[in-house]
Design a protein around this nucleic acid. Structure first.
Lengths: 228, 228
DNA sequence: GATCGTTTAAAGCGCTTGTTTTAATCGAGG
DNA sequence: CCTCGATTAAAACAAGCGCTTTAAACGATC
């Protein structure tokens, strides 16, 4: 029970996460993971039993680190729903895109979404569903009361889909967007701003440019309020 | 140069496609491909040189088969832009989702989008970019003339993102949607209908339910016109 | 300093991978 | 019928895989 025991475990988890994220479960090799972690080739089996259990641990670690770490900013009770929607969208985008040097957590979770293993159901129930239901309730602020459930869900899927697309199809989007524009206009704030106003435009049946200025004003007010 | 030469090649391509789609390039095995194709274990190397070249062939085959095969229906010159948008959205959805027993082509192309190899650039320039520019022009029907290019692109990305989401996150969406509702409301037509009217609502700053009835009427008119 | 559970190191096991090799089979032309 | 290039079949190859084993090194306790 040396003090370095946890340190080695942690180094292996970190190395395994990035390998699993980059190459997928089957293609990642225990040898490479151990080498990257500076541990012996038998360390994975010693600490985690086998490759599969190591994988499950990394998925749990990834969802906790990534999803519970990045949260929407705290707001006053009186904050308008438009800002809450913006916060939600921005948080979702930040979880997908926001990070220097692209940590492994998001890639790993994306793999689970795309090709769920047993680790996915836990992920959905624990993290995705609550967030999704919160978004649905938020959207009810503008939807007519008679809107059927299935349609409410689809509106929410539309919002999520717009956000996720910038990560899933990120490389293709990059090919379709001039580099100059990408640098200038694909910041988290600007993407969140676009998706929020486009969504609000469809829900409030008002022109996009009106909502552009309205949301900009709302955000500036809040920025001043918190800075003072 | 027996007459069966092309037949064997074709069988191997078909088997390789489904294996590559299901397991990815590295995880698919030449042995399994040959077994599935009813060919000998050395056939891949004999006909294609090596595994890599076989993969490139299957990607080319997939994009041609899938993308050129499913096209929007022919329309009159006078067809309103709303219907063209609906057609485009529906075609995109059909390419993603529409097929009995889920052929391998879409999965393979999704893999290329998610983790592009050298085969991807060809795919983008040949298929994705033209379709994307067509969509942008279509959306210009409702966007104000002053809208900057980067924003026009983002609106188009929003439309594509909503469509693609139903494929990329299909399994998670299934977990979040009651099975009953999925059977009833996740048909190609209904998904396309939802995405189209939501998009039109934001662009025409009119309520969703108004556009629901308008688009429904437009489509019914066209259905009657073509059936008569 | 000896002892004993914990951790590391290195070698090896059985198996599967992509590819090559070698031999058998086929089919049309002479 | 024989021949010879094209194709198939089956075995073999080296390399890499997850995992196990064996033995050495370590560290606290007596």
């Amino acid at each position: 029970m040396s003090p370095s025991r946890d340190a080695v475990r942690q180094r292996i988890l970190e190395a395994a996460g990035s390998e699993f994220a980059e190459r997928g479960f089957e293609n990642a090799t225990v040898r490479q993971i151990c080498h990257k972690a500076g541990a012996n080739g038998a360390a994975v089996n010693y600490y985690f039993g086998d490759k599969q259990q190591l994988y499950l641990e990394t998925v749990r670690l990834a969802s906790e680190a990534r999803i519970e770490q990045i949260s929407p900013p705290p707001r006053n009770r009186s904050t308008p729903a438009e800002v809450h929607l913006y916060d939600h969208v921005r948080t979702l985008l930040e979880r997908m895109l926001g990070s220097e040097q692209d940590p492994w957590q998001v890639k790993l979770l994306m793999r689970e979404v795309l090709q769920p293993t047993e680790a996915c159901r836990e992920l959905v129930e624990q993290h995705f569903r609550p967030r999704f239901e919160y978004l649905q309730n938020l959207l009810d602020s503008w939807l007519p009361p008679g809107m059927p459930d299935y349609r409410r869900r689809q509106v929410a899927f539309s919002v999520v889909g717009q956000c996720v697309h910038y990560r899933m199809a990120g490389e293709v989007i990059a090919m379709l967007t001039p580099e100059e524009d990408r640098r200038r206009y694909h910041s988290l704030d600007q993407l969140a701003f676009h998706i929020t106003t486009l969504t609000l435009a469809s829900l409030q049946h008002r022109p996009i440019w009106e909502l552009d200025t309205q949301l900009r004003e709302l955000l500036e007010e809040l920025a001043e309020a918190t800075s003072s």
